[in-house]
Design a protein around this nucleic acid. Sequence first.
DNA 1: CTGAAAGCGCTAACAC
DNA 2: GTGTTAGCGCTTTCAG
Lengths: 359, 359
Amino acid sequence: MSRNEVEMPGERKRHAPRGSNAKPLTGIREVARLAGVSVGTVSNVLNRPDKVSEATLARVEQVIERLDFVPNRGAADLRTGRSRMIGLVVPDITNPFFADVARGAVDAAGQQGYVVVLCNCDQDIDKQNGYLDVLEEQRVAGVLINPIGAIPSGLSRLRDRGSGVVLVDRSAKLSDYSSAAVDDVRGGQVAIEHLLGLGAKRIALVNGPTSLRQCSDRRRGARRALSAAGRSADDLIEVVNSTMTIHAGVSAVDQLLALDSTPDAVFCTNDLLAIGVTRALAQVGRDVPGDVAVMGYDDVDLAAEAPVPLTSIGQPKYELGHVATELLLKELPMGADAKHERVVFQPHLTVRNSTTATP
Amino acid sequence: MSRNEVEMPGERKRHAPRGSNAKPLTGIREVARLAGVSVGTVSNVLNRPDKVSEATLARVEQVIERLDFVPNRGAADLRTGRSRMIGLVVPDITNPFFADVARGAVDAAGQQGYVVVLCNCDQDIDKQNGYLDVLEEQRVAGVLINPIGAIPSGLSRLRDRGSGVVLVDRSAKLSDYSSAAVDDVRGGQVAIEHLLGLGAKRIALVNGPTSLRQCSDRRRGARRALSAAGRSADDLIEVVNSTMTIHAGVSAVDQLLALDSTPDAVFCTNDLLAIGVTRALAQVGRDVPGDVAVMGYDDVDLAAEAPVPLTSIGQPKYELGHVATELLLKELPMGADAKHERVVFQPHLTVRNSTTATP
DNA sequence: CTGAAAGCGCTAACAC
DNA sequence: GTGTTAGCGCTTTCAG
């Protein structure tokens, strides 16, 4: 590699440390020099190729190729004032729900040339707020967030600084943020409607902690369906568990069996609970769905492969992340006076053997 | 699945006007002006507070506070030439293994002030290479990657441009990249040793596609353990499946039962297969572990909660991501002449009821 | 259609 | 200690 004396026509000698070049010195400027054009032109071939003559275009592109030149996006971002990265803030990427959301978000972002930085809060509010600060320093174009508790105040600062914000799986009734969420109330309703349609008389709800919005929403939907069917919402037998595991489902059955008359249908607010319930029921000789119909929620992969394939309510997780991102990207150019919109996805029922022997 | 959009009236609240000037002009310069110091000093309070006098420090910090000033990391990165972001390239973030790796990586990165951009390839090599290009444009500090096929050539370009590269869950025997991986050969070996220790005579391996490195490695370990115990590696009965699902496990049992004499122990290369095998065995009246011991691999949450709790080989997933990141961060300052190291994690055995009735 | 020039916000020498 | 200053690599008027 020979050292070539860089001779600038424009007489810029005010720069000392460039006399003896040890650096590969690749940049738009070097491309311009080698192609015999100005940096402005190179910038044009990069961003507005249509505004450059065929000849120059070809020549510049060739040099770019030869030099292995790759534009520095960071520099461009600094100059234009807007970054091409968006932050995704989730409570736990290890939760399959959020992993799917992330996949949707990453895809949608990628399609528009954006990159997503993953912020995993581990259910910790302080960590969440810390990430918000980091994202602020990074001057992200926007943030997608499923806030852990209340809407963090950091979000408004982010927005004041020009970043977009959209809430994921969290409606924003009172706050003025766009959001994409799935309708859990509806999910609970659909579940009970299904059970009712099967002719269920005594329905039980096996729930998780009602402090979780999803749990309370699904419960609300369940009660609503009962009322809508002309029955008292209080007919719903409820068992709440502090965790939503198979084990919790198993023990829930103890409570169910202790009742005066056993329910003939049970709606579990997630699939693990349902699997536990099904198993425990089988152990005491109750047939599913013969004696009692059981359904779950989430429609995880496992649901279809359970000993008795599980009827479940699925959520469009990927779409959630995807649409949330598109929402964000869409309101970016509108700046401060963007109209915020809320899109609500509907959960959907997948019927399997656990509620109907012959699906 | 319908989707309805509701428009919310957008309310915009801008920050209070900075000073009485027209421009929102917030930046190190504005801080300097209001604090009556030079930009250099402000930069110092930001990066080297110890080099600033108590008085000035306090004054500048107060102005920073008042202005809600947050430094622009992108600008700093451009200036210093090194970015504070690292790319994480995985085949599928939806795979619990990689979700955990991601969590480890994000944590480790965050601790050092780095941010991780998530690149999800969906098992698509082109997509993977596309991300490598994007990361190159972003001039990331480094990339963590679990390459889909062969080591992508993009990695060397990345490195030439100054980014660090470390392979995740992929050893790099021939290539000169650092790596963090878990020893799957060892895992297979440990599994068989466990079964042998239980007194197993006829051992079966229920495997996934051997085109997957994990599958072939585990198989290799299994055979090795057999040899080490003075038995022929060919004593190992093998069933390979194209998928690694519960269903595949169920059908594997058909093949097992068709043998002259049924095995008394089976090692499945993942937990889903093992669950399927256990279930199918139960259906034909074989007791687990009484008649046949069954074990899985991965030690997913589900393993402990299976109908008969599953003995399984677990991998330190979080640590993998964490250490890979630390490896990367460590070799960053060393630049081109970093010595590359490979860290190998050992999988570990968790014994449950599926191999020993009384654990 | 192309070139020249002015920075984006910040850091890092060097001077005082 | 603190101020000055020259850019990092790129986009973007504004002339020609």
